[in-house]
Computed example of a mutant assay.
Amino acid sequence: MKLLRVGPAGAERPALLDAGGVLRDLSAVVPDIDGALLADEAALGRVRAAATAGDLPVLDADGLRVGPPLARIGKIACIGLNYHDHARETGAEPPGEPVLFFKAPDTVVGPYDTVLVPRRSVKTDWEVELAVVIGRTARYLESAEEALAHVAGYAVAHDVSEREFQIERGGTWDKGKNCETFNPLGPWLVTADEVPDPQDLALRLWVNGALKQNGTTADQIFPVAEVVRYLSHFMTLYPGDVINTGTPAGVALGHPDPKPYLRAGDVVELEIAGLGRQRQELRDA
């Protein structure tokens, strides 16, 4: 299923994109799309039954804002330097274990919402990423199969980053990762049954129409199953938690000087095969 949330920011309602590409209202079936829904097999069954019946009300998509496909996100755990080609372009050694940082849930915006360039920013960068959404509480998982069984679905994430804040201002990466609007998510949460192999997904990103990133999750250093398994030994993963799994080569940081960092007026578009496409215009904060 392709689940999404539509409407004004803070007042989104649950919806579903059916097999024919028709947007349908889920408000009468479930109150929202969040961790509670993803953990409730009976509720998900009602959604599937309603989708199959084909009688959900049709929504007029014209002018309707698409919000983040997941409400009340618990935490966003992010994996850095998780593609072989991205590690090479930044001159970093491939890590021996997943590199972990966090983004606050309040960085999440809709897939077509404005992204704000932070004040005094000179190195705002782009990163297309596969987001993994947890559907079952995960603690001390032992196998890849067990890890994937705890995944509810997948989405497109834009891990917007400010490289000066991240690298040159001391401490951890978090200062360059948590500026407002720095995690557009969506348009859909695609349930795991529709993504048979998360290591066979093409990722692309354009800036002002020019292709910048063109990669595949097959190039991940730590595949999705290993990332979920690994993290479950350091923290409990709950339904509604999100994991951003890293970005392929092609970020501004990897370009020769002068690096083409983002500025107000730029337009970024990104997509992952089968998971949808985003578009954001940038403006100054």
Rank of each mutant, 00 (worst) to 15 (best):
V133I: 15
D25L: 05
A49R: 09
V47G: 02
P184K: 13
T124A: 15
E180H: 09
L4N: 04
P31T: 06
D197P: 10
H233N: 14
G21T: 00
D106C: 10
D40K: 02
R72F: 03
F165G: 05
A53T: 08
L70K: 04
H233C: 02
L38K: 05
R279W: 06
V160G: 11
A192V: 13
E89G: 02
E142V: 13
L81V: 10
L3A: 04
A92P: 00
A28I: 04
E162M: 05
A77Y: 14
D257M: 06
A273V: 11
M1A: 12
G96T: 11
L26T: 13
G209I: 01
L17W: 01
T236F: 09
F102N: 06
G153T: 07
A19L: 11
S161P: 08
E129W: 14
G80Q: 08
G96Q: 04
E180P: 03
E89K: 02
V251E: 04
L270K: 01
W188P: 02
Q166I: 01
P184G: 03
V160H: 06
C78R: 06
R169W: 14
T52W: 01
L275E: 09
D18P: 08
V99M: 12
R48V: 10
I73T: 15
M235C: 13
E281K: 09
D34A: 11
G110P: 02
P8Q: 11
P198K: 05
G35M: 04
D266Y: 05
V190E: 05
E168P: 04
G45T: 03
S161F: 13
E162F: 05
A210M: 09
L56Q: 11
L275W: 07
L130M: 08
L130H: 03
K75M: 13
N183D: 10
E93R: 12
G35A: 00
E271C: 00
G63T: 13
Y140S: 15
T114E: 10
V207L: 11
V115A: 02
A249Q: 12
L16F: 08
V108P: 03
V99W: 06
P198T: 06
F102K: 00
L3Q: 08
A252E: 03
D62F: 09
T124K: 04
N214Y: 09
D284T: 14
K212E: 10
Y83G: 08
A155T: 13
G215M: 05
N208K: 10
L203M: 15
T52K: 10
L262F: 06
Q280E: 05
M235N: 00
E271I: 07
A249E: 14
V30Y: 06
A104T: 15
G74P: 07
L23H: 10
D257Q: 11
L253V: 07
P14G: 07
P69G: 12
Q166F: 06
A202G: 10
V117W: 08
D266H: 11
H158N: 14
F101Q: 07
L64C: 09
I79S: 00
T191N: 07
V58L: 12
I73V: 15
D125K: 00
E41P: 03
V122A: 14
G135K: 00
L56P: 13
H255P: 01
R204I: 00
D62N: 13
N178D: 07
A92W: 09
Q213Y: 01
W173T: 08
D284I: 12
G91N: 02
E145G: 13
L231N: 10
